[in-house]
Amino acid sequence: DYFTVDMEKGAKGFGFSIRGGREYKMDLYVLRLAEDGPAIRNGRMRVGDQIIEINGESTRDMTHARAIELIKSGGRRVRLLLKR
């Protein structure tokens, strides 16, 4: 199942961390959800969800650093296409 999650940044960021990336020879996944962060309050994202797109850009062969950069580059908002 594919689904989109739109979030607005909180005081401590978006409230999730990721693992994976090209340099680890793996796809990008949601690693952790911060307690009471925007990701957990949104209610749609879960640990283990695969991140397919960040702000419309495919994560295929994307490095971990580039993924972080893209998440931050959207300013106060981020849109993720996830797969569960």
Rank of each mutant, 00 (worst) to 15 (best):
D1Y: 04
D1L: 15
D1V: 07
Y2E: 04
Y2M: 05
Y2L: 15
Y2A: 04
Y2K: 10
Y2T: 06
F3P: 02
F3A: 03
F3M: 14
F3I: 15
F3D: 03
T4Q: 06
T4G: 06
T4P: 06
V5N: 02
V5D: 03
V5R: 01
V5I: 14
V5S: 03
D6G: 04
D6L: 07
D6N: 07
D6Q: 07
D6P: 00
M7H: 03
M7S: 01
M7P: 01
M7A: 05
M7R: 02
M7C: 08
M7Q: 04
M7E: 04
E8Q: 08
E8W: 09
E8H: 04
E8T: 06
K9I: 15
K9E: 15
K9H: 03
K9A: 15
K9T: 15
K9W: 10
K9C: 05
G10K: 15
G10F: 03
G10T: 04
G10A: 13
G10D: 13
G10I: 01
G10R: 05
A11T: 04
A11K: 15
A11S: 14
K12N: 12
K12D: 08
K12I: 05
K12E: 09
G13C: 04
G13N: 10
G13V: 02
G13E: 05
F14G: 03
F14L: 12
F14T: 06
F14K: 02
F14E: 03
F14S: 04
G15M: 01
G15R: 01
G15V: 01
G15C: 02
G15H: 01
G15F: 00
G15L: 01
G15N: 03
G15E: 03
G15Y: 00
G15P: 05
F16N: 00
F16Y: 01
F16K: 01
F16D: 01
F16S: 01
S17L: 08
S17G: 08
S17H: 12
S17K: 11
I18C: 05
I18R: 00
I18M: 14
R19I: 02
R19K: 06
R19A: 10
R19Q: 04
G20A: 02
G20P: 02
G20L: 01
G20Y: 07
G21N: 03
G21W: 01
G21T: 02
R22S: 12
R22K: 15
E23R: 03
E23V: 02
E23W: 02
E23Y: 02
E23Q: 04
E23C: 02
Y24A: 15
Y24T: 15
Y24G: 14
Y24P: 07
Y24V: 13
Y24Q: 15
Y24I: 08
Y24C: 11
Y24H: 14
Y24M: 14
K25I: 06
K25H: 09
K25Y: 13
K25L: 09
M26E: 15
M26D: 15
M26Q: 15
M26L: 14
M26R: 12
D27A: 11
D27R: 07
D27N: 10
D27F: 05
D27L: 06
L28I: 12
L28M: 10
Y29N: 07
Y29K: 14
Y29V: 12
V30T: 03
V30Q: 00
V30K: 00
V30D: 00
V30F: 02
V30C: 06
L31A: 15
L31Q: 15
L31R: 13
L31E: 13
L31N: 12
L31F: 10
R32P: 04
R32N: 10
R32Y: 14
R32C: 14
R32H: 11
L33V: 12
L33K: 03
A34L: 13
A34N: 15
A34Q: 15
A34H: 14
E35P: 14
E35K: 09
E35T: 09
E35D: 13
E35C: 10
D36G: 10
D36P: 06
D36S: 09
D36F: 09
D36M: 10
D36H: 10
D36Q: 12
D36L: 05
D36T: 09
G37W: 05
G37K: 06
G37S: 13
P38C: 08
P38D: 14
P38F: 05
A39D: 05
A39E: 08
A39H: 05
A39N: 06
A39C: 05
I40W: 14
I40K: 10
I40D: 14
I40Q: 13
I40A: 14
I40V: 12
I40M: 12
R41E: 10
R41D: 15
R41A: 12
N42K: 07
N42Q: 10
N42R: 07
N42F: 08
N42M: 10
G43Q: 09
G43W: 03
G43S: 14
G43E: 13
G43T: 08
G43F: 05
G43Y: 07
G43K: 13
G43N: 05
R44E: 15
R44L: 14
R44W: 07
M45C: 05
M45P: 03
M45R: 01
R46M: 11
R46Y: 07
R46L: 13
R46T: 10
V47D: 15
V47Y: 05
V47A: 12
V47G: 09
G48T: 03
D49S: 02
D49N: 03
D49G: 00
D49P: 01
Q50V: 09
Q50A: 15
Q50H: 09
Q50C: 13
I51P: 00
I51E: 00
I51T: 00
I51R: 00
I51Q: 00
I52S: 08
I52E: 14
E53L: 06
E53T: 09
E53G: 06
I54C: 02
I54P: 00
I54L: 07
I54D: 00
N55R: 03
N55D: 05
N55P: 00
G56L: 04
G56E: 10
G56I: 00
G56C: 12
G56P: 00
G56S: 11
G56H: 09
G56W: 03
E57H: 14
E57N: 11
E57P: 00
S58K: 10
S58F: 12
S58R: 09
T59Y: 02
T59E: 01
T59F: 01
T59Q: 01
T59I: 02
R60P: 04
R60V: 14
R60S: 13
R60N: 13
R60I: 10
R60A: 11
R60F: 10
R60K: 08
R60L: 09
D61C: 07
D61H: 11
D61P: 03
D61F: 08
M62C: 11
M62S: 06
M62R: 02
M62W: 03
M62D: 00
M62L: 09
M62G: 04
T63L: 09
T63F: 11
T63P: 07
T63S: 11
T63Q: 08
H64G: 08
H64T: 08
H64A: 11
H64Y: 10
A65K: 13
A65C: 06
A65V: 11
A65G: 08
R66K: 10
R66W: 06
R66L: 06
R66I: 06
A67D: 01
A67V: 04
A67Y: 02
A67M: 03
I68K: 14
I68G: 11
I68T: 13
E69F: 13
E69L: 11
E69W: 07
E69S: 11
L70C: 08
L70V: 13
L70D: 04
L70I: 14
L70F: 09
L70T: 10
I71C: 09
I71P: 00
I71R: 01
I71K: 02
I71T: 06
K72R: 12
K72W: 07
K72L: 07
K72F: 06
K72A: 14
K72S: 13
K72I: 07
K72P: 03
K72Y: 13
K72E: 13
S73N: 13
S73H: 06
S73C: 10
S73F: 07
S73P: 02
G74P: 07
G74R: 12
G74C: 13
G74L: 04
G74T: 14
G75E: 13
G75Q: 11
G75V: 07
G75H: 11
G75N: 14
R76A: 13
R76Q: 15
R77Y: 13
R77D: 06
R77V: 09
V78M: 08
V78H: 01
V78F: 02
V78P: 01
V78N: 03
V78G: 02
R79D: 07
R79Y: 13
R79C: 11
R79N: 08
R79Q: 08
R79K: 14
R79S: 13
L80P: 01
L80Q: 01
L80V: 09
L80H: 01
L80E: 01
L80R: 00
L80A: 02
L81Q: 15
L81N: 13
L81Y: 15
L81M: 14
L81I: 05
L81A: 11
L82H: 00
L82K: 01
L82T: 04
L82V: 08
K83E: 15
K83C: 12
K83Q: 15
R84V: 03
